[in-house]
Computed example of a mutant assay.
Amino acid sequence: MVAASSASLAKAEAAGVKLDASPEIIQLLRKADAVTFDVDSTFCCDESIDEIAAFLGVGEQVAALTAQAMGGTVTFQEALAARLGAMQPSQDDMRRFLEQHPPQISPGIPELVAELRAQGKEVFLVSGGFRAVIHPIAEMLNIPVSHVFANTILYNADGSYAGFDPAEFPSRSGGKAEAVKHIKKTRNYQTVIMVGDGITDYEARAPGGADAFIGYGGVVFRENVARLSDWYVFSIPAITATLRASGSSPTA
C-alpha cells in the first residue's frame, strides 16, 4: 500500500492536487462536529464487494463494475444492481464470507478514531458497501450501529438473493450527500467532514452536505477524485497529526 501511494505521488503533484492541509481545512477540522468515512478502500484497506465477488467466483466481472462506479462513469445504483445481479449472494454465502474474511482496518484508523473522540467529534460510516460487513467493523471500534449508513441485501424466505433495499441512502448516486444532510439535520451539526477514495464520496460535498472532502489515496489513487479533493492524503495518520497540531485536543 505504501509503494502504491509513493508511485502515485508524482501524478498527484503534476495534477496540482492539494496535498497540504490549507488553513481553511485545518479550521474546519478543528470545529467539525463529526467526520464521516467511506469504508471500502478508506476505513478498511480492501474493497469488500470485490472480495465477496471473488469469493463467489465472479471477481473480475464485478471488479470492472466497481471501477466504473468509483470513477463516476455510471450511476451508483446501476453499478450496485449489476454487481449484486452477477454475485447473487445468498444469506449462507454472506455468513461463510464473513467467517473467512475478518475486517482489514486501514493503518492509522484506530488512532484517528481515538483522536476524533478525544476532541469530542462523532464518527460515522457512510458506505456503498453492505451492513452485514460494516456492522462488525463498527462494533470493533465502538462506533454505534446507528452511525452506519450502508446498503442492505434483501433475501427470499429460503435465504436466496432477492435484491437490495432502495430506501438506504447509499444505494444511489448522490445518496452519500443525502446521508450527510440527514446526519446534520437530525443531530443539529453545523460542520461535517467526509473522508473517502471515490467519486461517490466527493458527492457528499454537495450543498448542505459535507463541508469539506478529504480524498484518500492510500489504497487506490483516482486522479479525478484527487483533483476534486479539498485536501488529498496518502496516509490516514496525516489527518491525525493535523488534528493534534490544531491544538484543540486535550491530549495534544
Score class of each variant (00 low, 15 high):
Ser5Met: 11
Ala7Tyr: 04
Lys11Phe: 09
Lys11Val: 10
Glu13Phe: 02
Ala14Ser: 15
Lys18Gly: 02
Leu29Cys: 10
Asp33Gly: 09
Ala34Arg: 03
Phe43Ser: 08
Cys44Trp: 00
Cys44Lys: 05
Glu47Arg: 07
Ile49His: 01
Ile49Gly: 04
Asp50Tyr: 02
Asp50Asn: 14
Glu51Lys: 11
Ile52Cys: 06
Ala54Asn: 11
Leu65Ser: 10
Gln68Asp: 14
Gln68Ala: 15
Gln68Trp: 00
Glu78Ala: 13
Ala79His: 02
Ala86Thr: 10
Met87Thr: 11
Met87Val: 10
Gln91Lys: 15
Asp93Gly: 06
Arg95Pro: 00
Arg96Phe: 00
Glu99Met: 09
Glu99His: 09
Ile105Ser: 06
Ser106Ala: 15
Leu112Lys: 03
Val113Tyr: 01
Val113His: 01
Ala114Asp: 13
Leu116Phe: 03
Leu116Thr: 09
Arg117Trp: 08
Glu122Leu: 09
Val126His: 05
Gly128Cys: 07
Phe130Ala: 11
Ile134Thr: 11
Leu141Cys: 06
Thr152Cys: 05
Ser160Ala: 12
Phe164Thr: 15
Gly175Lys: 04
Val180Gln: 06
Asn188Gly: 14
Gly196Trp: 07
Ile199Val: 15
Arg205Asp: 02
Pro207Val: 07
Gly218Phe: 05
Ala226Leu: 06
Asp230Phe: 06
Phe234Pro: 02
Thr242Met: 10
Arg244Trp: 05
Ala245Cys: 02
Gly247Ile: 10
Ser249Tyr: 01
